[in-house]
Design a binder for these strands. Structure first.
Lengths: 238, 238
DNA sequence: GAGTAATTGTGTCTGACGGACACAAATCAG
DNA sequence: CTGATTTGTGTCCGTCAGACACAATTACTC
């Protein structure tokens, strides 16, 4: 998996059509777009080069004329699925309102492409779109008086929360095989069977059974993070 | 992957030695322990049933007498690697100090078993140890006046931060192939090449080049989260 | 216009993976 | 001792990513 230089070139290099040879029947953008729609529909686990090629009407090995390997293709899928960073220039209310909208947009994108959280893992070469998102997130904190490292950490904290929640809620094949109810049923049954060992879990589960939702958890975490950031900003300003 | 009922039985059921038949030469605990040490050493991606069986001195198919499949084995690996929840009863300083230590212990565990973040993904059946961790985390918030749902969301927020950071820093094969320096070199080169498009990223990178570290990011996020939680707790109390 | 170099798509092959299945050896109940 | 049951093994299958050679296509050069 020594794919970083090639990935960087695919993400950032300008494609240069060779002079000689037959015209390519496919394009990398087309392959990436098809792969994204397949991953959206069936998940990333079931996406193979074979099935992708069949969907495109070509053989598997023809795809390797466009991408050196599957790892590079998924890197391109990631950056394409992120899409361009949102335009938040119209939002007023300071950094907090901007970052809130920024997080909601990212959340919406992760709901649209659940497999992204499985790909955006570990240190990697960021693509143009991912850097755009980072840029707009950092830009919201421009006038807060935080240092560069703090701004990076703050944005990482927010993205970590959004991604972590998306990872927990969008299961790979959660609704396909066993309905999600049975997982909840299994867990509540287990907790009920060991209520003496897990009193706090039992209490929290029963108390939260009706009220909680994934969007509530997102907003809860964002509110705490923003409150904590506001305290730091205030300390820096005052 | 309809593995949840079987996984639940393996995690929570009591093993019952059959009366007839030869005595098993292996034990599930032994298999899990060997798998964990192999995953620690070489990562989860390179761990296959074949190589695990070779390491144990048996054939691949013999392992399927102990676990119905690889998914169930990884679930057992996860719960075993988490280990028992830490004893935080001696820590005073209120919920904040307790949760801080709780997060640091989890961080240490994730550093010890980096592959855990790749497994603890999506809705799943929690094992005894994972529930122990959740219990101790919730217990720290017992006297804060938060509702059950809020306590769950708070613990999820903290674990999400710790896990997200562990996921970003512990790359699968980060130090094996291309040294991490070249990834940083690639990214800084890219940002430098597009400094006009990413002014905030450029500024933050140059400003944070020397000061930042992964442990700083962990503490930064924890401090913000705890500050935000403290504000909520104070609002509930006052 | 003819020849040559470069590139595309295809077919074939390999090694590794998870797992199904049948079978022989081992163990215990009666 | 006999029959039922379980363990470990060997063999087989389908799928996966990818290497490699080859024929067809295109453009540059003479």
């Amino acid at each position: 998996m020594v794919t970083q230089p090639r990935t960087a070139e695919l993400l950032w290099g300008s494609p240069e059509r060779p002079k000689r040879g037959p015209k390519p029947a496919l394009s990398l953008e087309q392959i990436v777009a098809t792969a994204i729609s397949m991953a959206d529909a069936e998940g990333l686990a079931t996406l193979s080069m074979q099935r992708l090629a069949e969907d495109l009407g070509f053989t598997k090995m023809s795809l390797y004329r466009y991408t050196p390997g599957k790892a590079e293709l998924t890197a391109l899928m990631l950056d394409a699925a992120l899409g361009p960073a949102p335009d938040l220039s119209e939002i007023d209310g300071g950094w907090r309102a901007v970052l809130h909208e920024w997080a909601l947009r990212m959340w919406a994108g992760l709901r649209r492409h659940p497999w992204v959280v499985d790909v955006a893992v570990g240190p990697r070469v960021m693509g143009p779109n991912e850097l755009d998102w980072l840029e707009s997130g950092l830009d919201a904190l421009r006038d807060t008086g935080l240092t560069g490292g703090e701004r990076l950490d703050a944005v990482a904290l927010i993205t970590g929360h959004v991604r972590s929640l998306a990872q927990q809620t969008t299961a790979p094949g959660a609704e396909t095989d066993t309905p999600e109810k049975s997982l909840n049923a299994i867990m509540t049954g287990i907790v009920a069977d060991h209520a003496d060992r897990y009193p706090q879990v039992t209490a929290a589960f029963t108390s939260a059974s009706a009220t909680s939702g994934q969007d509530d958890a997102l907003e809860f975490g964002l509110a705490r993070i923003f409150d904590g950031l506001a305290a730091l900003v205030a300390a820096r300003a005052g």
